[in-house]
């Protein structure tokens, strides 16, 4: 029975988390540089986490498999998967061949989300990158999709593929903190002037 309850919970929790979560994007009135750097350190924990960085592979069109459920050494996505210039595998093997709309209940089944699977844009290169490198990319409108930091925070609240990082299905460690806490940190960092660490 306990296994049945667990299975039912696993089947229903992600759908609830994705559809009902109401993300607030209210920036603080003020924030110091120190508070901004503190917020950034938490943001970096998220952006460098395998739930996010595995698909932020920069000029490589190969998604990565890394994190607690993939063993000690990061490795490329199995099956010789290439996302191509389209970043969705349109030229090779579409991500949608295996990645559907809802996370499966079976461990090691492909992660899914309702907005479709894809690699992040080339300029958003996070996998294996330093805190400073990611910080500078994220605050640069030329490399963050032309967004203000407030718009970056709103983007996180709206985009289902990003929400997936906190509802990744069975057997995968979610990104740290919560999506709301991550959005709050982005807003604090932005109000503080988007300070970046030395390294």
């Amino acid at each position: 029975m306990r296994r049945l309850i667990f299975a039912v919970l696993m089947a229903t929790v992600p759908a609830v988390a994705l559809s009902a979560e109401d993300i607030q994007t209210n920036p603080p009135a003020s924030a110091t540089e120190a508070e901004g750097l503190e917020a950034w350190s938490r943001i970096y924990e998220v952006t460098s986490h395998s739930r996010c960085s595995n698909c932020h592979t920069g000029p490589s069109d190969r998604p990565m498999w890394s994190g607690p459920s993939y063993g000690a050494e990061p490795r490329r996505h199995g099956m010789n998967i290439r996302a191509g210039e389209s970043r969705i595998g349109a030229e090779t093997l579409p991500c949608s061949t295996c990645h559907g709309a809802q996370n499966g209940e079976v461990p090691h089944s492909p992660p899914d989300n309702a907005s479709g699977w894809m690699l992040a844009p080339v300029e958003a290169h996070w996998f294996g990158q330093s805190s400073r490198t990611i910080c500078e990319q994220l605050r640069d409108p030329a490399r963050n999709g032309g967004r203000t930091l407030n718009e970056v925070a709103q983007h996180l609240g709206h985009d289902l593929i990003l929400r997936w990082a906190w509802a990744p299905g069975p057997g995968r460690e979610p990104a740290p903190y919560s999506l709301q806490e991550h959005v709050d940190d982005l807003l604090i960092w932005g109000v503080a002037g988007a300070p970046c660490p030395q390294q």
Binding site: P94, S96, T97, C98, G100, A101, P110
Partner: peptide, 13 residues
Amino acid sequence: GVATRSCTLQVGD
């Protein structure tokens, strides 16, 4: 017309 793995695709989707 697009190849899709049917073992993980829920029929409702």
